[in-house]
């Protein structure tokens, strides 16, 4: 991406709350939140080729831990960091056994983990579903918006750095052919595990920001598989294994969904499904390929340093 365009986008994102109404800022926040969710999934699947079907678990753990600490009086930044660490620890728990194996074990393992967590949290911690009145009185959108903006910048920056690093080269080799990656000297287990930890921590951060943003809280929602499937959709829509595809996918996904939901209510899901099929068929590389088609800009695969 051109630096000038990047600066313009950054200025726009920072200035949004000062030039737009609360509804628009709220949309902006939702887009940026999904940028974090999409980028964190993209890091592991798009570069390392590991399909995580339980991304919602990391999001939910981040939300649960951050919110519980914050409501207990811990500053939100510290609570968010704790939420991200808790998600990474969960990533370690599922990754240590399942990433040693090749094949579908990791995908199945993550899916099972997220469903188990969703049910366990919903049945054992019903009291966390609370809407505290004193927090509603003091609610301000601005700090929440900037927090999510910072997370979106951090997650995109992380993917950008990984894409240019030796670590990223190793991940791409694993994605293309794990066995050959090992014959050229890539320690595939450690690469996959490290990518999973970063991915889980970022998803946990996104969940934490969500817990801070969304005052009414139901654990079933934070652990809902929707967070996983939204991530998959956005990443494929925008362009898997690229730096700028997931943000484009997130913006397209959230704004189109909101616009369609306003006009078509329940029918919007049908229209959205059709749009998704068309995009995937017409642009297998995702919407980011449009840039390439239009300007012959190369994708953001790891380039020789």
């Amino acid at each position: 991406m051109r630096p000038a365009l990047l600066v313009a986008l950054a200025v726009l994102a920072c200035a949004l709350p000062w030039v737009a109404g609360e509804a628009v800022v709220n949309w902006g926040l939702l887009v940026l939140l999904q940028v974090v969710v999409a980028q964190s999934w993209n890091l592991l699947a798009g570069y390392g080729g590991q399909v995580n079907l339980g991304h919602a678990a990391f999001f939910g753990i981040g939300a649960l831990v951050t919110r519980s600490l914050w409501m207990g009086g811990v500053p939100v930044a510290a609570a968010l960091a704790a939420g991200a660490v808790a998600a990474a620890v969960a990533g370690l728990g599922i990754g240590l056994p399942s990433l040693r194996l090749r094949g579908p074990y990791f995908a199945i393992g993550t899916l099972a983990m997220s469903e188990i967590l969703r049910i366990v949290v919903a049945t054992t911690l019903p009291e966390v579903s609370a809407l505290p009145a004193d927090l509603i009185a003091g609610y301000r959108l601005l700090p929440r918006y900037y927090l999510v903006l910072a997370l979106a910048a951090v997650s995109t920056g992380t993917v950008w750095l990984v894409a240019r690093s030796r670590f990223g080269m190793g991940l791409v080799a694993i994605r293309e052919d794990e066995w050959v990656a090992e014959t050229v000297g890539v320690d595939s287990y450690r690469h996959k595990l490290a990518a999973l930890l970063v991915s889980a921590a970022l998803a946990g951060g996104a969940g934490g920001a969500f817990g801070y943003y969304h005052l009414s809280f139901y654990p079933q929602f934070a652990f809902s598989p929707v967070w996983t499937f939204d991530a998959v959709l956005m990443v494929f829509l925008g362009g898997i294994g690229t730096v700028w595809g997931p943000p484009i996918g997130a913006a397209f996904f959230v704004l189109l969904r909101e616009a369609l939901a306003l006009r078509l209510t329940e029918l919007h899901v049908l229209v959205f499904g059709a749009v998704f099929v068309v995009v995937v068929l017409a642009l297998p590389g995702g919407l980011v390929d449009l840039l390439g088609v239009l300007r012959r800009v190369r994708g953001s695969r790891p380039q020789p340093a």
């Binding site: 030796r166 080269m169 190793g170 791409v172 080799a173 293309e176 052919d177 066995w179 050959v180 990656a181 014959t183 050229v184 000297g185 890539v186 695969r301 020789p304």
Partner: peptide
């Protein structure tokens, strides 16, 4: 490896640079 097993979707140069990963 048997059957070459190149990174087919990557360029010749990218294949070589990955070979120099060690």
């Amino acid at each position: 490896p048997e059957g070459r097993r190149l990174f087919a979707h990557m360029t010749v140069l990218e294949n070589l640079l990955l070979g120099g990963y060690a």
